[in-house]
């Protein structure tokens, strides 16, 4: 999605320590204008901390962060005027109505009086909240609340949006609708940095950053990540006895990982040249019936599990 314009977000060697705990460990990446960058990683991996630093809510311990060309450390207010933010915890005023929340944030963001009605009208329409302007936010369901929060975050036409797990706890249809809105904004050139723990949502992103223990494990398009698959061939087997098959694979030479997916096993080989015949030979040697063996393309989840597992094993030295 690179358009040759300067990057909207540039993060270089970012480190954040809380006492002895390293929450963010030398993270570097960039987001282009109009690009949707997904943050994927386990809970506590540091996704929220990075986003909060980018919004100026935490001061970075080391490294440089430029948002819209402005250094967050030296001019946080300049950054705050140019971004929209949706925090992980729902943070609109529940005791106010939809319209009162929108009016409040329009005022806070300094939206000009003449533009205000138009911007609020746009946000209401975008969020599909027409007819509910007078409703107290506390009485809205999760999906409506999330769309209203997005509506409040874009009142001042920010060119950069930070969305921290915006769809957590929202039902699938509402999540789908929310992603349509994100895509529409990106079409207009807004850069979106969105964190999620839903694997399927990572597929909607232009690029995905995998984050584990505060480290950036991989950054690439979902397609490229899957193709690379950590460079490892992946097989699906359907053994009659899952336990025996797992035991046979444990510690076997040439096998990187084996994980259960329903009634099947996903087996990743360590050697790129490992093939189905090698796997069949392994099972024959151990006297276990593997059932059907099929090479398969890794899903993003496979890649994620594999990368996180190897990153955790090596403590990031291989990444």
């Amino acid at each position: 999605m690179s358009t040759g314009e300067p990057d909207a977000i540039v993060v270089d060697g970012l480190v954040k320590r809380f006492g002895a705990f390293v929450a963010v460990d030398h993270v570097s990446f960039a987001v282009a204008p109009g690009e949707i960058m997904g943050f994927l990683g386990p809970n506590g991996a540091g996704k929220s901390t990075i986003i909060r630093i980018l919004c100026g809510l935490f001061a970075p311990t080391e490294g440089h962060v430029r948002v819209s060309g402005i250094d967050v450390a030296t001019d946080p207010e300049g950054v705050r005027a140019r971004i929209g933010y949706m925090s992980q915890k729902f943070s609109l005023y529940r005791d106010l109505t939809v319209l009162e929340n929108l009016t409040f944030f329009a005022g806070i963001y300094g939206v000009r009086r003449r533009a205000r009605a138009e911007r609020i009208g746009y946000a209401v329409e975008m969020a599909g909240l027409g007819g509910r302007e007078g409703q107290r936010v506390a009485t809205l369901s999760g999906g409506w609340q999330q769309r209203l929060a997005l509506g409040c975050a874009i009142l001042h036409r920010p060119r950069i949006l930070f969305l921290d797990e915006p769809t957590s706890g929202v039902e699938p249809m509402a999540r789908r609708r929310f992603w349509d809105l994100i895509h529409a904004l990106a079409e207009d050139g807004v850069s979106v940095l969105v964190s999620t723990h839903y694997m399927d949502e990572a597929e909607y992103c232009d690029r995905v950053a995998l984050i584990n223990h505060g480290r950036l494990v991989a950054v690439d398009t979902p397609g490229a990540l899957k193709r690379a698959g950590g460079g490892r061939p992946l097989f699906v087997i359907e053994p009659a006895d899952l336990g025996a098959a797992l035991a046979a694979l444990a510690g076997a030479a040439g096998i990187a990982s084996a994980s259960v997916y329903g009634g099947t096993l996903h087996v990743a080989a360590a050697d790129p040249h490992y093939d189905a015949a090698d796997l069949a030979a392994l099972f024959a040697e151990r006297g276990v019936e593997p059932g059907r063996i099929e090479p398969t393309a890794p899903s993003l989840e496979d890649v994620f599990v594999d990368l996180v597992a190897s990153d955790t094993r090596t403590g990031g030295r291989a990444a």
Binding site: R80, Y85, K89, S91, I108, G110
Partner: peptide, 14 residues
């Protein structure tokens, strides 16, 4: 406590 401050301090309000 309600989490509304996190959003408020992400805006340019002084």
């Amino acid at each position: 406590e309600r989490g509304t401050m996190e959003l408020l301090i992400s805006t340019p309000v002084t």
